[in-house]
Design a protein around this nucleic acid. Structure first.
Length: 431
RNA sequence: GUGGGUAUAGCUCAGUUGGUUAGCGCGCCAGGUUGUGGCCCUGGAGGUCGCCGGUUCGAGUCCGGUUACUCACCCCA
């Protein structure tokens, strides 16, 4: 394997493309804070058993998609495939249940799943997630939908839609599962092969099948919502009531089921049209049983996660370019004798003042330095030659107007700031 | 894990029925201007034609394999 080739399913995010990531990350932090969610950072890897227990032994993730290895202490370690189980672990380990509940947290970071890459799916990908642990209020379910909507709107995502469903609690879901199987049993041989294997393993997923014939065959099948117990039904009604009161557009999708075992009651997905086959930019739901499953006292909780690569893809499909608009405040051109030393000194001085100053590292001719300054989009070029050093006056050329002025070396900082230089002052603050 | 498509310079691509020194455009570097950018002109650098094997006098071109990328399935963000 060529060492200059990155591992399959991974990506380099190059400087030319980093702008959109910064915009997304900044937006996430701002909006989460407005909703009172604070950042939590958990390890990139955890004990394998956390995911086996949390996500479910029979799920695809645990069966075939985890990056698992044995460390030098013979422990089985897994690169996190999702963010909820680690947050639940941190909630228990750090006894956050002893603080104010619900604990409202968000995270941004890489996840790992061993899958065949395709559009919008990678082996290392970034997720933004939010979790509210220790709260059963339907208003929390609604916040899980509100926050991503606000984030998507703020970064400029168009054409996305929210779908919601309730899959009930273990007791009402069990009743439904049996009713569903009863209605399918007679015709199960007509379904696609994967649906036939789902029949025993996870019959609810049959509702989610994309094969035309299967969709047709499940047209008149019982609907999960009709089987919800009183508590689950009331909870779902409240969620819808709040969404309606907030004028949030959503559609009820009674075929929406999600892949992890831990979901209960509310589940939802946010779909971006025009994303290709992997069109869910985000999804989540309530997981009232997970905290107990992982070994804590029972606490209801609800969460959401969004794939950032998919969000970037969707924004790119809208032809949104987020380039870094900043350009250097000046380019210092120099030639001959001691002028390079003067350029190095002046650049440092201007940079300490919070300005962006560039100069040549490649021993270019003056002409080539001018070309470089132009390519950078520098606002001014400062020309330092032997004459300028002798007279202590340098030429400052506006790259917009082409006008040149003589400015004494000591006044350049003020000149640039007075002519639109962007002081960010970060280095000044230290002195 | 299964199936389709693709692979030629930093980038986008062309390359005829197999034919001798593999090209265009953009980008990069230099010069035209020994102290001045954009436009223009001239020149230059840069290729194991993904990799391995086969057919052939001869393969970027045909065949087989392989790897990577890509799209889709399963599943998920």
């Amino acid at each position: 394997m060529a060492i200059t080739t990155r591992p399959r399913g991974t990506n380099d995010i190059l400087p030319a493309k980093i702008g959109i990531w910064h915009k997304i990350e900044d937006t996430i932090r701002r909006i989460c804070h407005q909703f009172g969610y604070e950042e939590i950072r958990t390890p990139i890897f955890e004990h394998t058993e956390l995911f086996e227990r949390g996500i479910g032994e029979a799920t695809d993730i645990v069966e075939k998609e985890m990056y698992t290895f044995t460390d030098r202490g013979q422990r089985s370690i897994t690169l996190r495939p999702e963010g909820t189980a680690p947050v639940v672990r941190a909630f228990l380990e750090n006894k956050l249940y002893g603080g104010t509940l619900p604990a409202k947290v968000y995270y941004v970071g890489p996840m790992f799943r061993y899958e065949r890459p395709q559009a919008g799916r990678y082996r290392q990908f970034n997720q933004f997630g939010i979790e509210a642990l220790g709260g059963a209020d339907p208003a929390l379910d609604v916040e899980m939908i509100l926050i991503p909507i606000e984030v998507y709107k703020a970064v400029g995502l168009k054409d996305f839609e929210v779908q919601i469903n309730s899959i009930g609690c273990p007791s009402c879901r069990t009743a439904y599962r049996e009713a569903l199987k009863d209605s399918l049993r007679e015709n199960i041989h007509k379904f696609c092969p994967s649906c036939q294997s789902r029949f025993d393993k996870n019959p609810l997923r049959i509702l989610d099948c994309k094969v035309k014939e299967c969709i047709e065959l499940t047209k008149d099948v019982p609907v999960l919502v009709d089987y919800l117990c009183t508590d689950c039904s009331e909870h779902f009604s409240k969620v819808k009531e709040y969404l309606d009161a907030l004028n949030i557009n959503y559609s009820l999708n009674n075929r929406l089921v999600r892949g992890f075992d831990y979901y209960t009651r509310t589940v939802f997905e946010i779909i971006s049209v025009g994303l290709g086959s992997q069109n869910a930019v985000g999804g989540g739901g309530r997981y009232d049983g997970l905290i107990e499953e992982v070994g804590g006292q029972p606490h209801p909780a609800v969460g959401f996660a969004a794939g950032l690569e998919r969000l970037v893809l969707a924004l790119e499909n809208q032809n949104m370019e987020v380039a870094d608009q900043r350009t250097p405040d000046c380019y210092i051109a120099q030639f001959g004798g001691q002028t390079k030393t003067e350029a190095v000194k002046l650049a440092y001085e201007l940079r300490q003042a919070g300005l962006w100053a560039e100069f040549d590292y490649m021993e270019k001719s003056l002409r080539a330095q001018m070309k470089a300054a132009d390519k950078f989009g520098a606002k001014f070029v400062i020309v330092i030659g032997e004459e300028e050093i002798a007279s202590n006056q340098v030429k400052v050329r506006s790259m917009v107007t082409g006008q040149e002025e003589l400015v004494s070396l000591g006044d350049i900082k003020e000149y640039l700031i007075g002519h639109g230089g962007e002081k960010d002052g970060s280095m000044e603050a230290n002195s």
